[in-house]
Amino acid sequence: MANILVVTEHLKGEFQDITFEMLGKAKEIAQSTGGSCSAMVFGSMSGQTDQMGAADTVITAEVGDDYNPEAYAAAVKSVVSANSPDLIMIGSTSMGIDIANPVSTALDIPTVSFCADIVAAGGGFTCTSQMYGGKMNVVSSVDGALISMVLAGSFNADTGRVSGSPAVEASAVEAGAGKVRFKQLIEPEAADVDITQSDILVAVGRGIGSKDDIEVAEELAEALEADIACSRPIVDAGWMSKSHQVGKSGMKVKPKVYIALGISGAPEHIEGMKATSTIIAINTDKNAPIFDVAHYGMTEDLFDVVEELLEELD
C-alpha cells in the first residue's frame, strides 16, 4: 500500500505540466497498491484544487504565491514529517532541485534523481534514472520511503489532468528562516524569432565546434526555409541568443521537422523537442542518446552532410 505525496509546481498562477505527469503516475501506483495519493499545493493555488482530481487529498501550504527555495523546502519538510508518505514525487526541475535535496538530507529519506520510471515493488520502489546525459539507464531499488525526482516528459500529463473535488487539508507549515527573499520574475527578452512557432528547425549543438561554423547551419536553414535553434552550451558560449535555445531551460518546440546537428540528446534537451513529428539527427557518435528519440539518423560528420545537402538543394 503506497501513500504518495506529489509536490506540485506552478508558475504565474498555473500548474506546470510536470505536476499532471506526476499526478497521473501517482494515481496509477496508488490504485495498483491500494494506497492513496495526495497533492501538495502552494499559496493561492489552493483556489484551483478542482484541477487536482487525480489526487485523493490536497494539502495546502500558506507560503505565498511566489516560489521561494527556502520557504517551499521548509513547507515540504513539515508536510513530509507529519504525513510520512512512502513515495514523494518532486519534479527534476529548477524548483525540484531546491526542494528534494534538503528534504532528503534533513529527514534521511533516499533521493533518486533523473527518474524516467517508477514501479512499486515488494513494499518499496524501483526507479529507472536516465544518467550520464541519457547514455545509461540506472535502476535503483529502495525498500522504504523514497523521494523520486521525475524528469519532465516521462509520463503522460493528460492522465493526471483530471477535474474533481478532492478533500482539502491545510498544513501547519513552518516558516523558513527568512534568509532568502524573492525579488521579481524576469520575462525573457523579446526574441528576433519565435522558434515555438517554426515549422522546420535546424538545431546546432556543441558538435558544431566554433561560432564561425554556425554559418554552415544557417545556410542549411536558409535553403530549407527553416529557423535556426540550438542546445544550451551554444547559448552559454555566447554564440547564439537565448531565444534560440531548446530544452528544459529554453523553449519547448514542436515543429514538423527538427534537424539536430551535433547534439548529443541529453534529457534536458530532449525535454524541449520530443513532441516533434519528425526528428532527424546527425551525430558522429552512434551511441548518442539523440538517436533514441530521433526518427531518422546519420552517423556522419555534420559538416560533410550539410555540405552535400547544400549541393543537392542548390
Binding site: D108, Q130, K135, N137, S140, F291, V293, G297, M298
Partner: peptide, 23 residues
Amino acid sequence: AGSAISSMAAPEKGLGAKMLDDV
C-alpha cells in the same frame, strides 16, 4: 544516499532512429 544501484545498462536500441546511409 540510503539507496543502491541494482542494475545499469545502455538504453535499448531498436525503438530508435532509422539510420540513413547517405545524403
